[in-house]
Amino acid sequence: MPALAHKLSVIGLSPVTVGLLAVSVFLFLGTAAAILLPRLRAGTGFEDLGPRMVSWWVMIALLTGALALGWRGTALLFAGVSFLALREFLSLAPARREDRLVIGVAYLAIPISYIFIFNNIYLFYLVFIPVYVFLGLPFLMAGLGQPRGYLASTSAFHWALVTCVYNIGFIPLLMRVPHWDAPQAGAVGLVFLLLAATEANDVFQYVCGKLFGRRRITPAISPNKTWEGFLGGWLLTTGLILLAGPALTPLRGVGLWTVALSLPLAGFAGDVTFSAIKRDLGVKDTSGLIPGHGGILDRIDSLTFTAPLYFHLLAYFSLATY
C-alpha cells in the first residue's frame, strides 16, 4: 500500500483523495446491493439498506465538505454533531423536572470546549469537562435543592457530556496537528483514517455478522451481535489500518500495530456500551434523525470510544504536537 500510495501520488493523487475514491467505490457497491438485494431475496431484512445507503452518502458528503474546509469547518461540523448527540442523550436520560435548567446549562460545555479548540488551549480542553464541568454541574444541581434521584441524574449528565462532547472533540483537536508533524497526508489524513476505520469496523461487523453470524456474543445486551461478526470486523479493520495507516499517518511498527489491533476493539466496546444504555432506557434507536440508522448516537457510538484512544496512541507513538 505505501508503494501504491507513492505511485498514485506521483500521478497527482494525495493519499486522502485515494481514500475518498475507495470510500466512493464502497458506497456505489453498497448502493447497488441496496437496489439488488431486496429484489433477489425479498423479506430477508435488506429492506432498510436503501435509506441506510442514502444516509451514508449524505454523511460522507458532509464529512468530505468539512474536511475540505480545513480545521475550522471540521470543528464546526463536530460541534454540531456533539450538540445533536447531547440533545439525544439528555432527552433519553432519566432527569428530574428541576433539571431543565441544568440541561440548558450543560449545552454550554460545547461552545466553551470549542473555544479551547479554536484557540489551541489543549490543557484547558483536557480538564474542562472531566474536572470542572464534572464538579460544577452537580453543584448547580445541589443548589436547586432537590435531593431526590440526584446521583442518578448527575451520573447520566456526566456520561452524556464526556461521550458526546469531550470524546468527539478529539477529532477537531487532531485537525490542529501541523503538517510537519504528520507529513504523510497532513491532519486530514489522521482524521480520515480514524473515521474510515471506525465506520468500516461497524460495517465489517454488520456484514460478517449477516453472512457468518452463528454464536451470540452479548445475548442480553445486543442479541444481533455475534462472535463471527466481531472477529470478522476485527480482522478486516486491522488489515485496513495496517494497509492505509502508513500512507495517511506517521504511524509505523509497534505504534501502527497497536492502533490497528486496539481500534476495532474500542469500536466494538462503544457499540456494546451504548446498546446497554439503550436497553436500560427501553429504546431501540436513540431517535429517527438519520433514516436507516436511527439517531446520531446510534451512528457515533463507536466513535465516542475510538476517537480518544486513537488520539492518545497517535500522540504517544508519533506526534510531537500533543
Binding site: R87, S91, R100, I103, G104, S287
Partner: peptide, 19 residues
C-alpha cells in the same frame, strides 16, 4: 416531549428531542 422543552410558565426553551 414538547412539555419538557417549554413547559407552561417557562420563559426560554431548552433543546430536547421531540417526537
Amino acid at each position: 416531549g414538547a412539555g419538557r422543552v417549554l413547559p407552561k410558565g417557562a420563559v426560554a426553551p431548552v433543546p430536547m428531542t421531540c417526537c
